[in-house]
């Protein structure tokens, strides 16, 4: 072995010998697959098929981006969080406040919102990620309710319970103005969602993403092989926060309004529920769970607003009892059955 030239070890095996199955699997893992185009094709088709629902569509994209960012820390990072609204709301409020004070360029506003949320993520992550279990859950929750309470009381800055007013948003790139039908908002949010998805996809398939999954599966083992567990988690937490901030800023820009519900516990809870419905830690859970949740909410709330809670509760119970892994988990199981 020692006299084998290095080149012979490194050189690819000759073409007539197939690669071992494991190697091929690993090499294939991150390649784009045909089904990954489906959400984007649906979104583009939606633009032409439902011209009256473009505003709603933009809201769905924003929620998907929010859920995708949450998936990074919850599904991949394994941090049970009930406080993601802290980042969403920070992004929305900072974007809104800056725009109300005269800086109206939408793309820089998104960056500002993301930076603000990342900062909140860095500071709170430093605290939250030092703990585990119930304490961690509590701390994520408390950070969000504290910010909500602060926004509620700081009426001179945030408008308090009346919401932030007076936002002005310039046309995107100086050309595309936000219109009444939401055509601009739809495309704008779709493009940013795509970029966000691309970022998350690259992250979860990168060595860094594998470390995250490793930490989720066994923190002790990752410590044992020398992985800087806390730093990795904190990095993921900040990235997730920044993306949540982008989603929040988009909401502020497309609706020209920021209300207290951007920071509410309901928002933190709903995003987790949407992810679970779709399928956690699967990259596409958000794309399924969010539209299903929002459509169901819309339907049930129209038919019987009082009992929306009842049906979502039953639906959730069914998922937890019979369909762990959400809808994508079901699809995976079905696919495995078919292949057998």
């Amino acid at each position: 072995m020692s006299d084998t030239p290095l080149a012979a070890v490194v050189a690819p095996p000759p073409h007539d010998r197939p690669l071992p199955e494991a190697v091929r699997l690993l090499a294939r893992r991150h390649r784009p697959r045909s089904y990954e185009a489906i959400p984007w094709l649906v979104a583009i088709a939606g633009y032409f098929a439902f011209p009256d629902y473009l505003q709603l569509g933009a809201q769905v994209f924003i929620a998907i981006l929010f859920a995708l960012a949450t998936d990074l820390i919850l599904g991949y990072g394994g941090v049970i969080t009930l406080g993601q609204a802290a980042f969403f709301g920070s992004g929305a409020y900072v974007c809104g406040i800056v725009s109300a004070h005269g800086w109206t360029e939408p793309l820089t506003l998104v960056v500002i919102g993301a930076a603000a949320a990342a900062l909140v993520g860095l500071v709170s992550g430093f605290v939250v990620l030092r703990t585990s279990g119930l304490t961690q859950l509590m701390l994520t929750l408390i950070v969000a309710v504290m910010l909500g309470e602060a926004a509620n009381k700081a009426t001179s800055v945030t408008g308090g319970a009346n919401g932030l007013q007076g936002m002005v948003i310039s046309p995107i790139l100086g050309i595309f103005d936000f219109d009444l039908y939401g055509q601009t908002a739809y495309i704008y949010c779709l493009v940013l969602l795509f970029l966000g998805w691309l970022a998350v996809r690259i992250i979860v398939y990168s060595p860094f993403g594998r470390t995250l999954t490793g930490i989720r599966e066994s923190e002790a083992r990752m410590h044992a092989i020398g992985s800087p567990v806390f730093r990795r988690r904190l990095t993921a937490y900040v990235i997730s926060a920044a993306l949540c901030g982008v989603a929040g800023a988009l909401l502020a820009e497309t609706t020209s309004l920021v209300a207290l519900d951007a920071l509410s516990f309901e928002r933190s809870g709903a995003v987790v529920i949407m992810l679970i419905i779709g399928g956690l830690g699967r990259l596409y859970g958000a794309f399924l769970g969010v539209p299903i949740y929002m459509i169901l909410q819309d339907r049930f709330a129209q038919a019987d607003p009082t009992y929306w809670y009842f049906w979502i509760g039953i639906f959730l119970l069914a998922i937890v009892l019979f369909a762990r892994g959400g809808i994508l988990g079901l699809i995976e199981r079905a696919a495995r059955l078919v292949r057998k």
């Binding site: 919850l74 049970i80 009930l82 279990g133 859950l137 809870g269 987790v272 529920i273 679970i276 956690l280 009082t306 009992y307 929306w308 809670y309 009842f310 979502i312 509760g313 039953i314 959730l316 119970l317 998922i319 937890v320 009892l321 762990r324």
Partner: peptide
């Protein structure tokens, strides 16, 4: 833990309705 969180949140929702 996440399943527990969801199951109990579902109970809360159902109880509200």
């Amino acid at each position: 833990e996440l399943d527990q969180v969801l199951m109990t949140i579902a109970l809360v929702f159902i109880s509200i309705a």
